[in-house]
Computed example of a mutant assay.
Amino acid sequence: MVILGAGPAGLVLGNLLHRGGIDCVVLERAGRAHVQTRARAGFLAANTVRILDRHGLSEGLHRRGLEHSTCEFRTEDGRFRLDYSKLGRGERHTVYPQQELVTDLLTHFLDAGGRIRFETEALDVLGAQCARPAVTVRDADGRPGQWRARYVAGCDGRLGAARRSLPPGAVRHRRRDHGVSWLGLLAEAPPSLDAVGYAVHGRGFAGHMARTAEVTRYYLQWERDSPADTWSEDRIWDELELRMRAEDHGPLHRGPILQRSVVDLQSDVLEPLRHGSLFLAGDAASLISPSAAKGANLAVLEAEILAQALIDDLAHGDPEGLARYSARCLPYIWGAQDFSQWMIRLLHGPSGTDGESLFQNSVRRARIEALRTSRSQQDWFAENYVGV
């Protein structure tokens, strides 16, 4: 078994296959230091924690992660909070930076004797319809190589070799550009509120997400195609305070901005998640906007489903799970896409003053008011916000 990519999907899959007695190797383009430090999402859903618990992969997140159960909305009509642990299914998030989860999974895999080839770039997957497809690679020195296996798991993202290797017509590609961009910021500053903060403002959305006691992630709705370094740090902090209405609700804790990047809110789904002996998981299977923090959680869920199916086939001669892999995963993926789009419409509105823009913003305002006042709407939100 060859696994492309050492992110959450690839490493969960590798750990589960190795423990199940399936010979596998993980091929990762980046070096180990980069894999363990690349900052990504940090909100783990309750079901993700249960999966990691089930397979003995959760020690680090229980020791260092923080449970989180409250989000705050700030709008032109004031602010309100939802304690979603008391709504819906009564579940919480665990805030645990993805780079720490990846480090835990990587350490567990290597300590158990798992094989990872860092700085090994997968170039192509050949013969996916054959009994033993081949993965062509290039190492850090530019030398070519090849790995053969019964199955290949593409966990290498939307731009990886797995997607590139799909021939025309092999899968259906559903995609949508939401027309919204965010400037993602990682600041060396303590959280400014004890909740996830969503601010809706005439100048655009702003978001606050705690990561650790010393580091906070912020988002600013951003002009499409504008470089991430367009604004100075002072201007960014001033804009964050304006959109989050710091004058009314208290100033933000400022600090150096460690990272900044522009994220275009886009979504896509490939159907089916299989082409012959090549299976897709994580961002290679579907890309989801960060508006609802579902990406890493879908990746872990898909990895567990795929691992059990592969073990059933390779260890017990039962291929049924592999045949049903797409059918099992796609309802979760489309459900997450649906809620992600709902969040995008909730948090963003047109900036114009024409009749269409005024109508859309009034609908958005009514949606927020229903979330503030309706228990049934709050229960629906909580179930979908934490669930996958």
Results as ranks from 00 to 15, higher is better:
59 E>P: 07
325 Y>T: 01
176 R>Y: 12
206 A>C: 02
325 Y>C: 04
62 H>G: 11
266 Q>H: 05
381 F>S: 02
55 H>P: 08
145 G>D: 13
59 E>G: 14
256 P>C: 04
17 L>F: 14
147 W>C: 04
360 Q>F: 08
60 G>K: 15
348 H>P: 01
197 G>S: 07
116 I>K: 02
153 A>W: 07
9 A>D: 13
239 E>S: 09
93 H>G: 12
345 R>G: 04
267 S>H: 06
250 G>E: 05
334 W>N: 14
106 L>K: 03
372 R>A: 12
197 G>N: 03
167 P>Q: 06
192 S>L: 01
359 F>S: 09
71 C>F: 12
175 R>C: 06
175 R>D: 07
28 E>V: 05
242 L>C: 13
31 G>R: 10
383 E>Q: 11
292 A>N: 09
203 R>W: 01
382 A>K: 04
349 G>A: 04
268 D>A: 09
276 G>H: 01
104 D>R: 12
319 P>F: 09
90 G>I: 10
276 G>V: 00
37 T>V: 01
376 S>L: 07
198 Y>E: 07
237 W>E: 05
39 A>P: 00
362 S>L: 02
253 H>I: 08
53 D>M: 03
326 S>C: 03
202 G>R: 11
210 A>L: 15
70 T>Y: 14
222 W>H: 00
55 H>E: 03
54 R>N: 15
111 D>I: 02
384 N>D: 00
8 P>W: 09
304 E>C: 02
112 A>K: 08
141 D>F: 15
259 Q>K: 15
248 D>A: 13
200 V>N: 01
56 G>Y: 11
144 P>A: 12
128 A>C: 14
4 L>H: 12
24 C>L: 03
41 A>V: 01
114 G>S: 01
275 H>D: 00
1 M>C: 13
240 L>F: 08
357 S>E: 01
271 E>W: 02
350 P>W: 04
287 L>P: 03
377 Q>F: 03
313 D>A: 10
163 R>P: 11
219 Y>G: 11
30 A>M: 12
24 C>D: 05
265 L>N: 06
230 T>D: 08
372 R>S: 07
239 E>R: 13
189 A>I: 00
167 P>F: 10
13 L>M: 12
90 G>T: 06
378 Q>M: 00
193 L>S: 11
20 G>A: 13
213 A>G: 13
186 L>R: 09
368 I>P: 09
290 P>A: 09
70 T>C: 15
185 L>N: 06
275 H>L: 07
257 I>W: 14
315 A>V: 03
193 L>C: 12
251 P>F: 08
138 R>N: 10
170 A>E: 10
195 A>S: 11
299 A>G: 07
122 A>P: 05
211 R>T: 03
66 L>T: 15
298 L>S: 02
122 A>N: 00
